[in-house]
């Protein structure tokens, strides 16, 4: 059910101006210029990359159901039209996703946390050897270093971690059931975690819905931890580099640095041996991510207003139409304005 609600909500936000595949790329967090720009244009930050492993099959199945049950129709070119039924259904999903800033890294946070807790649990019960629940050698190494640097042998680390978890998770703005789900995924000495199948039975929801709630809960919890690092030093350390501060793709980041040093698009394109259009994609991505980035070096104030007015007048964000209305502006210039989304 949650999956369907999220999909309908995304389709609404896309204003029927993208194809049926656009939500798929958004949910998987595809790092292409188009998807990244759409996040800004249609204000879809919360859903970006919340399902990095979503399979096309699962997605298509859900879409087929939406079509079958007459929530939408799809044209031959792959564009969709929502029906009245879908428009009535448009209630907001009240799960506090923050996909844009975590991008699947919440799973890294939980992997570290669960291994730290498993270790401290065994220590608390004087069992110094156990099979680690997390198999990734990098996570194991990270946790080993964390425990040693926090002198877990000499002091009562579990007490402090316990208190941090209780206080921070209680503050997280999400219902208790979600917190139960997250805590039931933990394991300890002689205490096994619960599988998705089991949680789905206990909570009487589908496995996929359980996972959505789980992800939203981790996002809400992480927001609190990273906002108040000094209050939760242990959890903040475990959340190290989990939140993306300046969410730029690696390549866009390099472009950003060169641009800051004063190079032009043309120069960067030659220097990096990349197409001009790729560098333009990067600039749009930077404009979207950094509200202080001044787009007026590419487009005049007057032209910006022209675009904003056209978006209003024609009630569209389709580039092709906007370009027809304003042939004096390049696609790149129009995209720059759109990238600012509602902040323009």
């Amino acid at each position: 059910m949650i999956f369907r609600q999220i999909l309908l909500q995304i389709f609404h936000k896309f204003k029927q101006e993208r194809t049926i595949s656009a939500p798929f790329h958004l949910l998987r967090g595809k790092r292409s210029g188009q998807t990244i720009q759409d996040v800004g244009i249609f204000q879809l930050h919360m859903y970006f990359g919340i399902l990095p492993k979503l399979s096309r099959k699962t997605y298509d199945e859900e879409i087929s159901k939406l079509i079958e049950e007459q929530y939408m129709t799809v044209s031959d070119e792959g564009y969709y039209i929502l029906t009245a039924k879908a428009k009535e259904m448009n209630q907001t999903v009240d799960l506090p996703f923050n996909g844009w800033q975590y991008r699947g890294n919440e799973h890294l946070f939980f992997a570290r946390l669960s291994l730290v807790i498993q270790s401290l649990s065994h220590k608390a019960y004087n069992q110094m050897s156990f099979l680690p629940i997390q198999k990734d050698p990098q996570v194991q190494e990270w946790v080993r270093k964390f425990l040693i640097s926090h002198h877990y042998q000499e002091r009562d680390l579990q007490q402090q971690l316990y208190e941090e978890i209780i206080v921070s998770l209680e503050q997280a703005p999400i219902e208790q059931h979600a917190k139960v789900i997250v805590m039931k995924r933990l394991t300890g000495y002689k205490i096994a975690g619960y599988t998705w199948q089991q949680l789905s039975i206990y909570e009487n929801k589908s496995e996929m819905d359980i996972q959505f709630i789980y992800i939203a809960c981790l996002h809400a919890w992480l927001n609190g931890i990273t906002d108040k690092e000094s209050q939760f030093p242990l959890l903040a350390a475990i959340a190290e580099q989990v939140r993306v501060a300046m969410p730029l793709s690696g390549s866009a980041y390099q472009t950003a640095q060169l641009f800051q040093q004063g190079y032009s698009i043309e120069q960067i394109s030659q220097y990096r041996k990349l197409k001009r259009s790729t560098i333009e994609d990067h600039i749009v991505e930077i404009a979207m991510n950094n509200p202080r980035f001044d787009i007026r070096s590419f487009i005049t104030e007057e032209e910006i207003h022209q675009v904003v007015n056209a978006v209003d007048d024609y009630n569209t964000r389709k580039l092709k139409i906007l370009h027809e209305v304003m042939p004096n502006l390049s696609y790149f210039q129009i995209r720059l304005v759109l990238a600012r989304g509602e902040t323009v």
Binding site: I117, L120, S121, A124, Y125, Q158, Q159, L161, Y162, I165, I166, V180, M183, K184, L186, T187, G188, Y189, I191
Partner: peptide, 8 residues
């Protein structure tokens, strides 16, 4: 549950 796992 957290208390039990951490032996508190």
């Amino acid at each position: 549950r957290v208390a039990k796992i951490l032996g508190i």
